[in-house]
């Protein structure tokens, strides 16, 4: 049933579809500064560099090299997405590069990429959208040399918000992908 043009579309999916989705929002949002990428900087939460993130007190072993805490605190487990987009934004490259490097340093670790969406979408569609985000991260890590067999994915849709409230800032924080340690951390 696939036509030639359909096959061509499939071949281009990594670039064309991602770009299309990014600039074809499924709904306008109040307070948005405009269409396209004009407000991207506003919507993307700041990425703390290594060592500048909040560090909570903890027992011995907190942040020990190769531990889950090490990964969360010193590498960072989440990256954020634009409205309706599942394209990895350039701001996220350093963090994902660091994740890939960390995972190569600790090859026994397996991860589960969790895709998340904001509350401004319907439940089932958001699950599918979250899955695309998780897959984007998975593909990025594979490109950076992490073996596919170490990476599982799951979408939580809008079911696991990390920020409360109905604000642009909360929505931006809730559009994320989290690299969760599944096993093998010290």
């Amino acid at each position: 049933m696939m036509t030639a043009s359909r096959i061509a579309k499939v071949a281009l999916i990594g670039v064309a579809v991602a770009a299309m989705a990014a600039c074809a929002p499924r709904r306008p949002v109040e307070g948005a500064t405009g269409p396209g990428g004009a407000d991207q900087g506003v919507n993307i939460p700041a990425y703390p560099g290594p060592g500048t993130g909040a560090i909570e007190g903890g027992g011995i072993g907190s942040g020990a090299p190769g531990s889950e805490n090490d990964f969360v605190v010193n590498v960072g487990d989440r990256i954020y997405f634009d409205l309706d987009s599942y394209q990895i934004s350039p701001e996220a490259y350093p963090r994902l590069d660091a994740q890939a490097a960390w995972l190569q340093r600790y090859p026994q670790v397996t991860v589960r990429i969790e895709g998340n969406a904001d509350e401004r979408g319907t439940r089932e569609y958001n699950l599918a959208l979250g899955a695309r985000r998780a897959e984007s991260i998975r593909n990025y890590l594979i490109e950076r040399g992490v073996s596919a067999g170490r990476i599982d994915t799951i979408s939580f849709g809008k079911e696991r918000p990390i920020a409360q409230g109905s604000t642009e800032e909360a929505w931006a924080r809730n559009r994320n992908g989290r690299t969760a340690i599944a096993s093998g951390a010290q």
Binding site: R26, P28, V29, T122
Partner: peptide, 20 residues
């Protein structure tokens, strides 16, 4: 999104978003 076919068959209900 989220369509639901009526048990009578005559209508499909759905969720539509736009304009905030």
């Amino acid at each position: 999104t989220a369509p639901a076919w009526s048990p009578r068959g005559d209508l499909i209900a759905f969720t539509r978003s736009g304009g905030g």
